[in-house]
Design a protein around this nucleic acid. Structure first.
Lengths: 208, 208, 208, 208
DNA sequence: TCCTAAGCGAGACGGTACGTCTTGTCTTCCA
DNA sequence: TGGAAGACAAGACGTACCGTCTCGCTTAGGA
């Protein structure tokens, strides 16, 4: 009985949330996260400042909640298509390629959030997120290695990929995504061979 | 003859700079960079707020100038002892070990500056700094590879090392530095072998 | 029906204005206008400094707005009782007597504002105000004299009266108001007779 | 032996004083007394701020000392030529004429110092100064009147003259000095006749 | 159809920090 | 000794945000 009402209320509230989120993302691109005031956001969103505090404690809260939605919408829909059993194959479509595609697609946003003038916590969050995904995929692939080794490798892979992405974005994407992914893949796969010599089945040969 | 005057003046100013720098570093450890106000700094340094602005435009300026000094004092004195010809040797003292030692020594500071609540620009600065050092050492070692490949590798190595350091610090340093460096080294060296198969002499023959 | 809201808002704002005005006047008496800081005022008024700037640009703005209210409240209620046809009568109640009474009543305030350590602009304002009133009353009384002569006389009368008031206040009011007014009146009326010999009916026949 | 040195020192000091005084007066005309900082003055005078404090406590001290010199130099040289026995004569050169001449000559300075944005204490000082001169001249002329009456008249005359001067300057000097003095003289002399009926010998006739 | 509760606009307010500006003191040195 | 140079403490200035609060309007749902 109370659902229809709730739904309508939700509609209004969701609209407000959407307005705030869009205003924030626009403003991040325009002037950098740190230079945005709550007033900027609400003015852009055609809302009053009090309304902001009705929904979020903080600029950070709004950012995190916005990123969460974005990631749930965007990243998942891509990464779910990854076949874990194909992780290591070097047949020209290394999984990191998707990351480069995604980064290129949202390059403005990522530059704004991850650049020198960006938000430290976002970077850490993304790093943890990538490590988590990597860890899961590694677990599907390497079943019998110690957890601590696996964690180490996951962190290594996620971190190095993230940093390649940062460098790539920072330097105006000097190489095409495919080349980036290919090179990155070579470095990584050979690295794994070093650490896990007996475990790594050579998926294809990477002798270029 | 005019030097004594200058020196005295400098002495006062240098003292002020030192007080401010120390106050800043202390406060970063105590409450996080973002929560520090100029007033906090000058109160801690027993100076007046106006004096701060006599020397620095900004909290950021003070931070950067402080880090510069620290790096010039600390990092250089360590890294200069590195023999560029030993870059690739896997004999138990991989060069990254120094990085782990250094990070462990100043772990509080780095945690404060590089953590989730840290300063994004510092992280980028350190990344670039590490990439630069790596590039130089690679140039000493690999003389005939294209600049773009070399740059790519330098970014990869610096980025992955930096991220290992971050993860290590963040997680209360679960492994000893030696183990970290050893594992990291394995991953990296093998990666290089993959990307530069014909160029990489095996460890040991670093006869330049 | 929407008035109650407006009224409530007004009530709050008016209260704030009143608090600030009263604080200012108190402080002027205590330490002199120039030695008052905005902080002094808001502390006294139990308000925050930001609130001050919400309502007034300046210490001067607050002063002027406060004086305006005081004058509207105080001076008008007195001067309205003046019968313009009685301007020149020398029967013991010359109009300047009201000025002396008023000055005596608010002697602390006027001393604070008009003394050596007072506010130049207030003095000029009061002089203009008195000249204006004098001009109006002269216009009622002398109908056929040139405007420039009338202006001259008004300035003369207002200025000389104001200065007598200042001297009187500065010197601890050595004579009773009645005597001051009587003497001042004699000097002025006879002066007028000199400048307007044919126009000035002698005191007493104000049967207009 | 030390005298020549002393003289040199004095010369230097006097030069410094002169530079500061001139800088102050220039700046008063340019931007108004209140808007001048010590720094403005010393910069203009080609001196260092510390030097200012070597000679004067205050901006006010410098002003007062400067005005004193100016008055000693300027006003005295004029007023000394006044013959006290000619005070009341209406032969076309009433003594106030000199005041109007003087005011016209230094109109910029007086406007700056005495206007709405001027310095309250200067105005009071000048008023007292004029009252003093007036008192002296009255004492030469009227020998047998009570001191309090004389004081009253002196204050009246000085105050009304000062205010006429202010009004005149403020309004771009709408009438020539001679006319101002003539009108003012009529008003005053007749006023005196009223207060001191038996004492005032008619000096010439003002039935003009 | 009215009622009522939630969302929201408006904006006053206390509070903190900012970066700038003056003031007056002090010290060190030069001429 | 007079002055230059400039570091420093102290503190006011006017501005910008922040987070909280109160007051009513509006509006959509349930009565």
């Amino acid at each position: 009985m109370s659902e229809p009402k709730k739904q309508k209320v939700d509609r209004r509230v969701r609209r407000t949330h959407r307005m705030l989120r869009e205003a924030l993302l626009e403003l991040i691109l325009e002037k950098g996260y740190d230079n945005i005031s709550i007033n900027d956001i609400t003015t852009r969103a055609d809302l009053s400042r009090a309304t902001f505090y009705l929904h979020y404690q903080d600029k950070d809260h709004l950012l995190m909640s916005s990123l969460e939605e974005m990631f749930d919408d965007l990243v998942n829909q891509r990464l779910q298509s990854l076949d874990p059993t194909t992780l290591m194959q070097g047949d020209g479509t290394p999984p990191s390629l998707y990351a480069f595609y995604h980064a290129a697609e949202y390059k403005d946003l990522y530059r704004a959030l991850l650049s020198e003038r960006g938000v430290a916590s976002v970077l850490h969050r993304i790093r943890r997120y990538m490590a988590q995904i990597t860890r899961r995929q590694l677990m599907n692939y390497f079943t019998h290695i110690p957890a601590s080794t696996l964690e180490f490798i996951a962190q290594y892979m996620a971190g190095s990929l993230l940093n390649m992405l940062l460098w790539w974005l920072e330097n105006e994407m000097p190489h095409p995504p495919e080349e980036m992914a290919q090179r990155y893949h070579l470095l990584t796969v050979n690295g794994l061979r070093g650490l896990l010599p007996s475990l790594v089945p050579l998926d294809g040969d990477t002798s270029d």
